[in-house]
Design a binder for these strands. Structure first.
Length: 912
RNA sequence: GCGAGAGUGGUGAAAUUGGUAGACACGCUAGAUUUAGGAUCUAGUGCCGAAAGGCGUGGGGGUUCGAGUCCCCCCUCUCGUACCA
């Protein structure tokens, strides 16, 4: 570039000023970062203009953290930096920005710590919150700290309880004795979503089924709307798909199979749900879940012993055991027969634990010809298999085709679906069943009601008392119901919550009737507080409801919500459910809370190389199918490794090593503490690195050397403005306009071109959440500008503005120093946070020449530069291209039979 | 099994609508500078080749003047889910 070829005169103007600022000339984040953090706090720089509803709004939300004792990990600042960049960018673009933070502070860890140490969870929680707040502030996030919310604050959970009362009023909260996931180790029940493979998601303890009295929320009443309204959300497709799967809508029919009159249970009918009513003629037996209530009534005498033995075994099995038996299906004949309503065939009724009580009706009609599970079962117990859909070979495997298959063997005296394709057959047979009163079109959801109570201390108390053994909601003016102070937080082995021990608190009187009453001793699950926190931020001090309706209309919906994908179905589904209820009762004005959702990808630990050694000390090649635990793992340095083919081997050997990054974990010892990074490289470097690693949504490994890289960039940006030798602004930095407004130095065209290219790129990349490439553009600008002999202030200042969302401390500091340069000695510039975002000028992006790539037979052979005003002139450009020696050489090889001309891009000569 | 997403240098990654693959950064090599440095600067760096040139975006095939990008088949990895009738 020619920009650094600065002719003499500008230098003669000699506008630079040296400021004497001892110790401050070197880029030292520890000097400037706390200074600006304090400034922003003291001046409440980022307080949201709550009352100003005339400007366009932008609500950008982070998933609020659970303040754990171990503090922030590097995954937090990833999403938080992304939203902070957007918040700062939008402010500079004139938006009224709501960018809040708070604490999801109820939860098990504080309670378990309390049990261990006797420290009250409130104290632990408050300490942890203080730690998190300090850490977040040390990263320079532009939160409005006046809007902090805390789910454990009675002023907050008063409204969580209020919403529960509304749910109760709507008939959406009820008590039920249900078989719950009881986890003895944790001393609590868990939601289905909190149980993974039969173990608790937290801690991995075994979970067993146990009937208990529980509060349930009727989320199933909203299943259809939760499913339908996904359509209009701008969310990652994968998350929407997970929610769809979780809701699990199936369409089919409910069909009754009368139990044969000669046996016990005559007059009963077994109701099944099927998605394949077209295969009814292929139903050769039935299966009930072992827990099915009909089992007792239909089992014949001879089978009684076998059946009850099987039921007992099944009951003892945890969910984990039941899935383990996946491959080998078991079951027992009940002795009873049912009648297939389409053909009056008598078919045997079995029980088997591959049928779940919790889905559909807890009973199935088995169609072994066209269902893999039924096929396996029928094979094992030698039950008949009939083909009713053409196309497969049912002697070898079940033929499952619900689209193009053609029905066969499916007719009775009144109806035939033979020769019909499956979708058509479903309609015909369902209609017939409905006419005959034998069945009914039906929709079933996998989604089940939400188990909403926990046997814990550290959660929101229910605003419920029990009078005469019946639950009764407390009047609204008795909120909040606060937790009693206790010393003993130990759950009881019987499953009774710790709150039951607070006798004085439990025993109360009904404020309405004056009768003695006992308080509900269960508490709400951790999800409760996070179901609506985004509303509280809007009016955190509002006294008349959870949210000020006027402000709600202005701020909702959340424009952008960023957080981890681990909340795909839990938090995000629950919050949508509550929001819809609040919408129905007029508390909020939007159907959906979060218009746009982005999941940040997980940050893994540094890349690790692992070699394996057997007991004899010999290296063994790593196998992709996993290595045995008996082998010793040896961690190797990068220097000891070389690439061979698509694998890594120990240098000079054929021993393959594992090369991969692992999830950060304490046990692996690969956890990066943000505090350490801030101490060594500064918050700006941490922010920048987290954004520079790669696309926000992607999983990516940490690299300390990568942090060094962006740190070097920040140092260069610093030296672009500051002179480390002279303790002042760099002598090359010149203002282009004198303080009286007369022109002093005009930025060169090339300088302006680079600046405006950078503005354009950074602006578009921020809008598109491509922060990594935005930073790359800022680096390119810096690298080029460092070569300039003259660095006009008029060019540097817009650069600092577009750098500021990424590295706000550095940008503020340099802005301040350049401000001194421009305005004489004053400190007039306080903050750049509300400076208008620079706009690029199209005219300045144009260059004088255009470069064409010249191909011969599709291979690039050279390039040709032509004046911009001739660039569209095909003949001129082709002529210039032919004259290129590297091109001409290849043209001589034959006849040019075709010439491709793509304006401003490429020329291709086809030679034969 | 099923569903979704992804495979590009030694590494993290770039690449509007098909149009110069590897921007930017790390690492590495050589040099300069410094009392020294893990600081800074300069040059180089996809692979093979002295060069000309050839080969290169998981593998195979196709469409096209031209394919990382579009189509078909296959392989691998990650995430989610799991007897859902």
């Amino acid at each position: 570039m020619a920009a650094n070829r600065r002719p003499g005169p500008a230098r003669i103007l000699h506008q630079h000023i040296s400021h004497r600022l001892p110790d401050m000339s070197e880029y030292r984040p520890s000097n400037i970062e706390p200074k600006w953090q304090q400034y922003w706090l003291d001046n409440k720089t980022f307080r949201t203009g709550g009352a100003d509803h005339s400007r366009p709004k932008y609500y950008v939300l982070d998933m609020f953290p659970y303040p754990s004792s171990s503090g922030l990990h590097v995954g937090h600042p990833e999403g938080y930096t992304a939203t902070d960049i957007l918040a700062r960018y939008k402010r500079m673009n004139g938006f009224n920005v709501l960018h809040p933070i708070g604490w999801d502070a109820f939860g098990l860890p504080a309670e378990q710590y309390a049990i261990k140490t006797g420290t009250h969870p409130r104290d632990t929680t408050n300490q942890n919150i203080d730690g998190f707040r300090r850490q977040l502030q040390s990263l320079g996030f532009s939160y409005d700290w006046d809007r902090e919310v805390n789910t454990t604050d009675p002023a907050y959970f008063r409204w969580t309880q209020w919403i529960f009362l509304k749910l109760y009023e709507q008939g959406l909260a009820y008590e039920a004795s249900v078989a719950v996931n009881w986890c003895p180790e944790l001393g609590t029940v868990l939601a289905n979503e909190e149980v993974i493979d039969g173990k608790s998601e937290v801690g991995g303890f075994p979970v067993e089924r146990k009937p208990m009295r529980q509060w349930m929320l009727r989320i199933t009443a909203y299943a259809e709307r939760l499913l339908q309204d996904l359509e209009e959300l701008d969310w990652p497709e994968s998350i929407k798909e997970m929610q769809r799967n979780w809701i699990g809508k199936s369409e089919g029919a409910n069909v009754g199979f009368p139990v044969k009159s000669a046996v016990r249970g005559a007059g009963e009918s077994i109701e099944v749900f099927t998605t394949r009513p077209d295969t009814l003629f292929g139903a050769t037996y039935m299966v009930l879940a072992p827990e099915h209530p009909l089992v007792d009534r239909i089992t014949t005498g001879e089978q009684k012993a076998a059946v009850s033995a099987y039921r007992e075994t099944a009951a003892k099995k945890s969910d984990l055991d039941r899935t383990d038996l996946n491959k080998d299906k078991t079951g027992v004949f009940t002795g009873a027969y049912a009648v297939n309503p389409v053909n009056n065939e008598e078919i045997p009724v079995w029980i088997a634990d591959y049928v779940m009580m919790s889905y559909g009706t807890g009973a199935i009609m088995a169609v072994p010809g066209h269902d893999v599970r039924d096929w396996e079962f029928a094979r094992k117990y030698e039950l008949p298999i009939i083909e009713v859909v053409k196309g497969g070979d049912i002697t070898k495997e079940a033929y499952v085709d619900s689209h193009d298959g053609i029905c066969v063997n499916s007719a009775n005296d009144e109806v035939s679906i033979n020769d019909l394709p499956v979708p058509e057959a479903k309609k015909v047979i369902t209609k017939w069943l409905e006419e005959k009163g034998l069945g009914k079109h039906a929709v079933t959801y996998k989604l089940r009601d939400w188990l909403f109570s926990r046997q814990r201390y550290w959660g929101e108390p229910f605003p419920v008392i029990h009078v005469d053994g019946k639950p009764k909601p407390l009047p609204e003016d008795h909120l909040p119901v606060t937790l009693p102070d206790m010393d003993d937080f130990q759950p009881t082995k019987t499953g009774e919550p710790p709150l039951a021990k607070a006798r004085e608190w439990v025993n109360t009187t009904d404020p309405e009737s004056g009768k003695p009453a006992v308080r509900e001793t269960n508490t709400m699950p951790q999800w409760a507080g996070s179901c609506w926190y985004y509303l509280r931020y809007i009016s955190p001090d509002y006294e008349k409801g959870p949210v000020d309706p006027e402000a709600e209309k202005y701020w909702m919906p959340v424009d952008l919500y960023v957080g981890g994908a681990e909340h795909a179905v839990l938090h995000l589904l629950y919050a949508r459910f509550w929001h819809k209820v609040l919408f129905d009762i007029g508390v909020v004005s939007t159907k959906e809370p979060f218009q746009r959702l982005v999941n940040q990808g997980m940050i893994l630990g540094e890349l690790e190389f692992t070699a394996y050694r057997d007991s004899g000390g010999n290296y063994v090649s790593a196998d992709r199918n996993g290595m045995s635990d008996e082998l010793e793992r040896v961690k190797l340095q990068e220097k000891e490794i070389e690439k061979r083919g698509d694998r890594f081997v120990i240098t000079g050997t054929d021993t393959v090593v594992d090369a991969r990054s692992y999830k950060m974990s304490k046990s692996r010892g690969n956890v990066i503490n943000p505090d350490d990074v801030v101490e060594q490289y500064g918050a700006d470097a941490l922010r920048l690195y987290e954004m520079f690693m790669g696309p926000l949504e992607q999983v990516k490994p940490w690299s300390m050397q990568g942090v060094e890289g962006v740190y070097r960039f920040l140092k260069r940006a610093w030296r672009l403005v500051m002179d480390e030798e002279s303790d002042g602004v760099h002598p090359a930095v010149l203002r282009s306009v004198n303080s009286d407004g007369t022109p002093a130095v005009s930025p060169e065209r090339a300088q302006l071109k680079l600046l405006h290219e950078t503005i354009k790129k950074v602006t578009e990349d921020i809008e598109g959440h491509r922060f990594n490439t935005a930073i790359s553009a800022l680096m390119i600008f810096t690298n080029e500008a460092m070569k300039w002999d003259v660095r006009p202030v008029e060019v540097l200042k817009p650069f600092l503005l577009i750098l500021s969302p990424f590295a706000p401390h550095l940008a503020e500091e340099l802005w301040e120093r350049l401000g001194q340069l421009a305005d004489g000695n004053s400190t007039a510039r306080n903050t750049l946070a509300f400076e208008p975002w620079p706009q690029y000028e199209e005219a300045l992006l144009q260059s004088d020449t255009k470069v064409y790539a010249v191909q011969v037979n599709g291979k690039v052979r050279g390039q040709v530069e032509v004046p911009a005003d001739r660039a569209a002139d095909k003949d001129f450009v082709l002529d210039a291209a032919r004259k290129e020696p590297t091109v001409g050489r290849h043209l001589e090889k034959g006849q040019v039979i075709k010439e491709i001309f793509v304006p401003n891009r490429v020329i291709n000569f086809v030679v034969k």
